[in-house]
């Protein structure tokens, strides 16, 4: 089947999509956007988190056909020209990246959290990010990264909107 979408602000049409494919598979294997990750493909790890019409979802749990006519933003779409988004920069600076397989999903989830709650407390961060597994860091530096991004975005509010 043919799927018509907008991905990272660009119109993207894909042909020959098999009905059983997920949005994640379509992004990774048919659109050349492997940034969204395939860690569990069953909605448990959050590594494939993308925006679907502005709502953060696990791309592995969305059928490709459900994305037809919808607007999708992936981790690749958060970069602002050549500049990293403050969330991306904070993950780098805080040492929140080791193997990095969880990072794209966590970057999108954190982006979403800070759009809703610009100055979250520790418990709020932990609750919101509880659907994103990380096996390398023990999460301490991820917590640091979220707080660093929040404080930088508060002092430079033009960066908040996406």
């Amino acid at each position: 089947m043919r799927i018509t979408t907008t991905v990272n602000s660009e119109p993207r049409d894909v042909d020959d999509v098999w009905e059983g494919e997920s949005l994640l598979y379509m992004l990774r294997e048919r659109m050349g956007l492997p940034g969204s990750k395939n860690a569990c493909e069953q909605g448990e790890c959050g590594s494939c988190t993308v925006y679907l019409d502005g709502v953060a979802v696990c791309a592995c749990l969305v059928a490709a056909g459900q994305a037809d006519g919808r607007d999708i933003v992936t981790v690749e779409g958060l970069t602002e020209g050549n500049d990293l988004h403050p969330v991306q920069q904070a993950f780098l600076d805080a040492g929140a990246v080791q193997c990095g397989f969880c990072t794209p999903g966590l970057v999108v989830a954190t982006h979403d959290l800070l759009a809703r709650t610009p100055q979250p407390g520790d418990s709020e961060i932990r609750e919101y990010l509880a659907g994103n597994l990380c096996r390398c860091t023990g999460y301490e530096k991820i917590l640091d990264a979220v707080k660093l991004a929040a404080s930088r975005m508060a002092s430079s509010p033009t960066k908040v909107a996406k």
């Binding site: 990774r28 294997e29 050349g32 956007l33 492997p34 940034g35 969204s36 990750k37 395939n38 992936t74 981790v75 690749e76 958060l78 970069t79 990293l84 991306q88 920069q89 993950f91 780098l92 990246v97 990095g100 397989f101 990072t103 794209p104 970057v107």
Partner: peptide, 17 residues
């Protein structure tokens, strides 16, 4: 490899094509 990892551009073993 940090910038590639935070932007989703780092090529993992399941990303090649």
């Amino acid at each position: 490899d940090g910038i590639l990892k935070v932007t989703g551009e780092f090529s993992y073993s399941s990303d090649m094509w």
